[in-house]
């Protein structure tokens, strides 16, 4: 039994994909870093643009700029190197999930 469990654990570990962005993590980052600064919920922030508009901003390397336009008070955060290196991909996944045309409904 122990051998089977160990094999399953190793097998599943090998199956796991490499690091990827995480919308839930993005939501938590918004709550921690931006909610009080911006003065509105993450759902309102994400709904400032459509999915295509967020995607264009990301592709053009202008995610920080577009996010600053959506929440001017968060400029320092969006200009920080931590945003670019650590937070932007998770935040992008979050805003993409709850963009104005996503059809997704933030939980109450």
């Amino acid at each position: 039994m122990k051998k089977v469990a160990l094999s399953v654990i190793i097998g599943l570990g090998l199956l796991a994909t490499t690091a990827s962005a995480d919308a839930d993590k993005g939501q938590r980052i918004y709550q921690k870093k931006l909610k009080s600064v911006c003065g509105f919920s993450g759902g309102v922030f994400a709904a400032k643009h459509t999915q295509d508009e967020w995607a264009d901003a990301k592709d053009n390397g202008e995610l920080g700029k577009v996010m600053t336009e959506a929440c001017p008070a968060g400029k320092d955060f969006f200009d920080s190197s931590k945003f670019k290196k650590k937070f932007s991909s998770h935040l992008y996944d979050f805003v993409n999930d709850f963009a104005s045309d996503s059809g997704n409904i933030p939980s109450c």
Binding site: V8, G13, S20
Partner: peptide
């Protein structure tokens, strides 16, 4: 042990 296999779509737990 909570482990995503394919992003958020497919995961496992032991």
């Amino acid at each position: 042990w909570n482990l995503p296999i394919i992003n958020k779509y497919f995961s496992t737990q032991i």
